[in-house]
Structures are given as structure tokens and as C-alpha cells.
Amino acid sequence: MTQQLLMIEDDTRLANMVGEYLRQSGYGFTHAADGNSGLAALAASPPDLVILDLMLPDMDGLEVCRRIKGQGGEAANTAVLMLTAKGDPMDRIVGLEIGADDYLPKPFEPRELLARIRAVLRRGGEAIPSATQKSMHFGSLEIDRDARSVTVSGSLCELTSYQFDLLVAMAERSGRVLSRDQIMEAVRGRELEAFDRSIDVHMGRIRNAIELDAKNPKRILTVRGVGYVFAKQQD
């Protein structure tokens, strides 16, 4: 079944260019030139993903995102990819906090937009535990999202905030082999940490914190030449 995209963007020339490119890539594409018509189109037929510009003529794009995520039913589960002004991190941060799934600064290359759309839709199809689920348990390992704490057999593990986010991302995708790029994509928004080999350093420190024997890990395993996998088995 063809995945459907809705672009809410007042720049008709840009929307036509993006629409042609995405249709050629196999997606269904609809365009709305302002927030109200975009919300109406979404309510009538919820797409798989909304490409949302933050600068709209009738309302702020952040408000559109709030309304999308605040709706009940199928529409509330629609993924949102924001188009933000280059060099304006606050819009990006606020957008992610209110539920946007990813962002892309303008101007952008259509190929990057396509790659981000594919990544967001792929994540949307994964069986990821609900973010409202307070804790995840894997044998003696407990990850508490609310407290942002990790314990093994009741003993608190010392992790940085970024390492906690990495561990959560891995645990949510337990049993799946993830490349370094996929791991970094899962914790997007922490650009200062987004260096490929820094993942290896952080994984080593996470192992030191949660594994009984970090040199012979049982929970976070290296898949040579690919990346890492969080093992599902109970200990």
C-alpha cells in the first residue's frame, strides 16, 4: 500500500518540486498551503507523515503540530517532520518536545528529505514500547524513564544523560541489530555527541555500568562490521 504524505507549506513552488520528487520515489503526496487547510486535510484522511513548515500565513507551525498531536484517533499517531529555519535551534527543540518526530533545516536537498522521511516511517513501524510505559525490565536490569535511572539487581548504575538516552534507544529496539547511524538517529537532537566513533566509547561505558563482566557482555553485543544489538534474553 502506498504511503501517503501531506506537506503543509505556503511556498507553492517548493511544494510542487518536493511533491514531484516524492511521487517519483513511490509516495502519495498532498499539499496544503496553510495550517487550517492542512489540519482539515489531515482530519479528512490522515496521512502516514506530515511535512510541516513552521512559517505559515495563518498560524504558527508549532501550533499546527500541537493540534496534530493533541487530536484523538488515528490522526494523533501521524508522524511529523518539521521544516525549520537554518540556525534556529529553539524552534527545533520546542517542536521535538511537543511531539515532532524529526526536523530538517531549510534550505535542504530533496534526497536528505527523502532519507529522513524513510527513517521516520521506518521507526513508526517498529514495535517500540510506549513512551508512557514508566519502566522497562530485562532480567535484573531495570530502566526507569521517569526517574531517568538504571539499576541492576537494585543497585544504581552511573550513566550520563546521553548514555541513558542511548541505552533507552537500544532497549526499545531489543533484538534488532543497529548501525551506529541508526543509534544516533534514534537520539537525534543531541548533535554535540553525534560523532560516529563516540558511540563506541559510550557503549563501552554503558557496558561498564550495566554488565556483570564488561569484557564479556551479555546485554549489549557488538556485531562486527555493523554495529550493536541489545540482547533480549533474561539473565
Rank of each mutant, 00 (worst) to 15 (best):
L54G: 06
L42R: 06
V80Q: 05
A32T: 04
L83I: 04
A75C: 13
L114I: 03
T222P: 14
G225V: 08
R224D: 06
S45G: 03
G189S: 06
G28Q: 07
A44H: 10
E9P: 07
T151P: 02
R145H: 04
V150A: 07
R111T: 12
L14A: 12
A41F: 01
A32F: 08
T12C: 06
A127Y: 04
E191Y: 04
M55I: 00
A75L: 12
S25G: 03
R67P: 13
M170Q: 11
V152Q: 14
T12W: 01
L212A: 12
L167E: 14
L121Y: 11
G225H: 10
E158L: 12
V80G: 08
R207G: 04
M1W: 07
I206A: 08
L14H: 03
A44S: 15
M17Q: 14
Q234K: 11
I183L: 15
S155A: 12
I117W: 06
T30W: 03
G189F: 02
T2M: 12
I98W: 02
R205G: 03
V150M: 01
V187S: 00
P47S: 14
G87T: 09
M82P: 08
A209P: 09
A15I: 13
V226M: 05
P110N: 14
K232H: 08
K69Q: 05
K86F: 05
E211G: 14
V80D: 02
L156M: 12
F164Y: 13
N16V: 11
I98Q: 09
M184F: 12
A43Y: 06
F164P: 05
D53W: 01
A214T: 02
R123K: 11
L113T: 04
G87F: 06
M55K: 00
E109Y: 01
E112S: 00
T78D: 09
T78A: 04
S149D: 10
L141P: 12
M203T: 09
M184K: 13
D235E: 06
Q182L: 02
E20D: 11
S140H: 14
D101G: 02
L22T: 01
H202K: 14
N216M: 00
F29S: 10
T84R: 09
K106A: 05
T84Y: 06
